[in-house]
Structures are given as C-alpha cells and as structure tokens.
Computed example of a mutant assay.
Amino acid sequence: MSDAEWAVVRPLLPVPGWLRGRGGQPEAYCHRAMLDAIRYLVDNGTKWRAMPADFPPWDRVYAFFRRWRNHDLVREFHDRLRRLVRERAGRDSEPGAGVIDSQSVKADAVVGSDSRGFDGGKLINGRKRHVVVDTLGLLLAVMVTAADVGDRAAAQVLLTQVTAAHHPLALVWADGGYTGSLVEYCLAALALVLAIVKRSDDMRGFVVLPKRWIVERFFAHLMRSRRLVRDFERSIASAEAMVYWSMTMLMTRRVARPCPSRA
C-alpha cells in the first residue's frame, strides 16, 4: 500500500476495542502491515503458510483475517471506502440503481462437498458468486453458494439483504436468467424494479449490452486477483470476505489518485 493510499485508508479503519475502552490488548502488529499482507495474498494467490518473511507471521495475519471476517469488519471497511469513492465521483453515498449477476468458478480440492455443486450451464464444479454492484461497478453485496443453486433463488435472498441495507435502491438491471416470479416479488415485497436486459435473438457474436457490461467488468476485476480465479476457501464466509478484500484494493488505488485540476 502506498503512503497516499494509507493516508486515505487509516481514518476509515474500524477502531480496535481496546482503544474504545472495551477491553482486550493492543495488537502486536500495525494495521498497515496486516492489510498489506492480506492484500498480497489476495492479489498473488499464495498460501497462508507461504506468506513472505517481509510480513508478520502467517498465523497472526490469518488470525487478523479471521477476526475481521467473523465480526464483519472487512465489510464495514469496504462499505466506508465505497461511500468515499462515490462521493469523490460526485455521486450520492448510497446508490439508487444497481446490476445483479452471478459467476461460477471452479472449487479447489479443499472445498467440501457440502458447499460445492455442479453448474450444468457453465459445466463448472464449484461455487457461484452472486453479486449486486452499483452503476460505478462497486460492490454492494456478495453471496457465495454452491454452483448448482439457481440465480433466481439466490437473487431473492440477496436482493432482500441489499434493499434492507441500501434504502434508496429502487432499480436493478439483470439478464434473462432472472425473469419470472422474481420480478413480481421484487416489486411487491421490496418496492424494487427488476429490469431485464435481454439479448436480441438476431445478435451474433459478442455484443455489449446496456448496464450488464458494468457487472461483467466487476467480474473481470475479480479475475485479476489470483486468489479468486478459483475458490480456495474452506468456508463460504471466507470466500465472501476474499471478494470484499479484492474490492478494497481497487478502491484504495482509486481514491489515492490525485484529483484532476479544474480550470
């Protein structure tokens, strides 16, 4: 992490309990070193035990990762970064529209049979990442399931969570796999318009579809993080946390860029 990134990140970090008078002991390693270690693992796809000696011991880094995962601190940190990125882009801190889609990825051998499945459409044995992003391509929520879980069934749960957390959200674009009763459910139960962007039958080859390209660009970013090319996580919670960590790297680099001068 560059000094410019750290200057932006430091005020957004959750405050440790011992600093708020809630007990506990000061941590042995600074947050910057811990964040750099996790970002290195996500970006390069290394094993926990193969953490380079430049970083704190791997078991201390994993304990930090596990604590932030279990207490939802990585999502809190991620959401604070997302609001900052949106505000610097001249947008409201909370989005009014988004895009939903899913991505199936192969699972490593450490992934148990209870959390993996076979996606017959993509011919992938592994897990599926269901995501909702805003119109800037920033993550609003992710839910990881076995690959054989249907998009509509997962979307009903995911969109319920997203609308509860982001009240201004009123419109979500989706592809043809989300048609059917889900559209009526979103309107009646969530006061959310689910707009289906369909591919025309006469289209041939690759065609950029309105709004859907935003979430495809998001998936392309995930594929640049080697830890996310496959699913290497033993638990669903860790798989979701890795997605949030990957997005924090994208956003810290974005907010650390100098703002263009205005004449």
Results as ranks from 00 to 15, higher is better:
39 R>E: 11
114 D>Q: 15
163 T>W: 05
242 M>C: 13
191 A>V: 08
176 G>K: 02
153 A>D: 11
28 A>T: 11
263 A>L: 13
235 S>M: 11
102 S>Q: 01
160 T>F: 01
49 R>A: 12
137 G>N: 09
211 K>C: 05
90 G>M: 12
91 R>N: 10
239 A>L: 07
220 A>N: 13
162 V>L: 11
242 M>P: 03
202 D>K: 03
89 A>R: 04
69 R>C: 05
91 R>L: 15
144 V>L: 08
29 Y>W: 09
180 G>D: 02
192 L>T: 06
140 L>P: 03
38 I>S: 08
73 L>V: 08
92 D>A: 15
26 P>K: 13
17 G>V: 05
11 P>T: 03
171 L>Q: 07
207 V>S: 13
201 D>C: 02
190 L>Y: 10
183 V>C: 09
53 A>G: 04
176 G>V: 04
228 L>F: 03
156 Q>E: 12
127 R>Y: 04
189 A>M: 12
255 V>P: 04
111 V>N: 07
215 V>M: 01
205 G>F: 11
208 V>H: 14
141 A>T: 08
130 H>N: 14
47 K>S: 07
174 A>W: 00
160 T>A: 09
39 R>W: 14
159 L>A: 07
28 A>Y: 02
46 T>D: 05
15 V>Q: 07
164 A>T: 14
149 V>M: 10
186 C>H: 08
51 M>D: 00
221 H>Y: 13
10 R>H: 04
255 V>F: 06
101 D>H: 13
5 E>W: 08
189 A>D: 10
59 D>Y: 15
75 R>T: 14
141 A>D: 15
